[in-house]
Amino acid sequence: MKNMKAKDIIIPALALFLICLVSSALLAFTNSITKEKIAQNAVETENASRQIVLTGAESFGEVSQRENGLTVCEAFDAEGNVIGYVYTSSAKGYGGSIGVMIGYDTEGTITGIEILSHGETPGLGANATGDKFKLQFSGKSGPLTVNKNSGEGQNIQAITAATITSKAVTSAVNAATEDFMKTIGGGNNG
């Protein structure tokens, strides 16, 4: 009777253990196949985004980490001259963190921005990925503020009914601009 009981516990436990073992092995195998492809995808998307925010760049230097989670890399033209810098930055939006990539020329003027990742509401905040909003940043420099009515001067016109998203993207851009001025811009201008 006692022996029966031990068997009742051991067999189910063993079965469950075997299922877990086989599953983990299967997952490890799939992971080993897809891992490289996933990493490659990430690199490709990042390169494609870099080309968008800084058109004309032929190659990019090594990415270095800055404080507050910013990253930066140099951009070169065909002759190997530095023609600008590409930052990645992030800020908390309405539906979670928004990742933004910003391109600068050597003077610190924004050449373009791209939304890398977001969890904003479709139809509202998700419109930040549209050109109408993103193109406003091009050609601007220095700290920017969000305005509901106009996109002139240092203003960025907010997306209709998505002020939080607009502010988040702008603050992500401002954080990168500040770092640019402090490190790269400051160095050049003495």
């Binding site: 299967l26 997952l27 799939t30 992971n31 897809t34 492809k37 996933i38 995808n41």
Partner: peptide, 9 residues
């Protein structure tokens, strides 16, 4: 998880 990895890749 397998489907997720394949979709990601």
């Amino acid at each position: 998880t397998i489907v997720q990895m394949i979709v990601k890749a």
